[in-house]
């Protein structure tokens, strides 16, 4: 029998596994970002960043993270193209069937997330790699990456902060369907537990984006 990941169900399984891994990663990311809100001149945040950039375990997980991003995006593109090809002639009347609203726009919210990811990489990760340079006055110590001041520099720019918050709203839309959909793909649909999974998905899709969005709001309006 052919390989599991060549089938439609197998491709979706791979994409869902990568997606759930990214959800877990984002929780860690949020935890570290929230340290920016501590009024300690970025002491704890810098410690977290140092841990994330030097710890051997994190260094091992880092390539897995990139692989998860790649798998999630590439398989999404493959499945989406197949889905478009499955209906070459469209209906004249838009479909009125009752279905989950956000599920209809996963590829659109996905593309927005990808666009932001590129921006995020240019602003942070590429700076770490030395491919792009940080904003002026942000990197006072040679050889160190001052992510704390880089973040503050961006979050005090209203245009960047608005883009950042808008992105997280779209990310919330994406999660709203993605989380519970992944469990359905895993084959986990249960009378008792599925409502709980849907609730956790809804809570995640609201609380995680809200957690990230609080940070630029704080730096724009309350930070002195």
């Amino acid at each position: 029998m052919s390989n599991i990941f060549c089938s439609s169900i197998g491709k979706k399984l791979l994409m869902s596994l990568a997606g759930i891994f990214l959800c877990v990663f984002l929780l860690v990311h949020l935890g570290i970002n929230l340290m920016l809100l501590r009024n300690d001149g970025g002491e704890v945040f810098k410690l977290c960043v140092e841990f994330m950039t030097t710890n051997i375990l994190i260094k091992i997980v880092e390539p897995v993270l990139f692989l998860a991003f790649l798998i999630h995006m590439i398989w999404a593109a493959i499945l989406q193209v197949q889905n478009w090809m499955a209906r070459p002639s469209k209906y004249a009347v838009t479909n009125h069937s009752q279905s989950s609203f956000f599920s209809k726009y996963m590829i659109h919210t996905g593309i927005i997330i990808f666009a932001f990811l590129v921006l995020h990489f240019v602003n942070f990760y590429f700076v770490k790699l030395g491919l792009t340079s940080p904003a002026q006055g942000v990197n006072p110590v040679e050889g160190e990456h001052d992510f704390y001041n880089m973040a503050i520099n961006l979050f005090t720019q209203p245009v960047y902060s608005v883009i950042y918050i808008a992105f997280f709203i779209f990310l919330g839309f994406h999660f709203n369907h993605a989380f519970q959909s992944a469990f359905q793909t895993f084959g986990l649909n249960h009378k008792k537990y599925t409502p709980a999974i849907k609730f956790i998905g809804l809570a995640y899709s609201i609380l995680v984006p809200a957690g990230f969005a609080i940070i630029p709001i704080y730096f724009m309006f309350f930070w002195k």
Partner: peptide, 20 residues
């Protein structure tokens, strides 16, 4: 499942329209 894939049906994205 292999035949379903071969015949050119799309991939399920759990929208729920079919059930409705």
């Amino acid at each position: 499942v292999a035949k379903m894939d071969e015949l050119g049906f799309g991939n399920c994205t759990n929208t729920g329209a079919c059930e409705a």
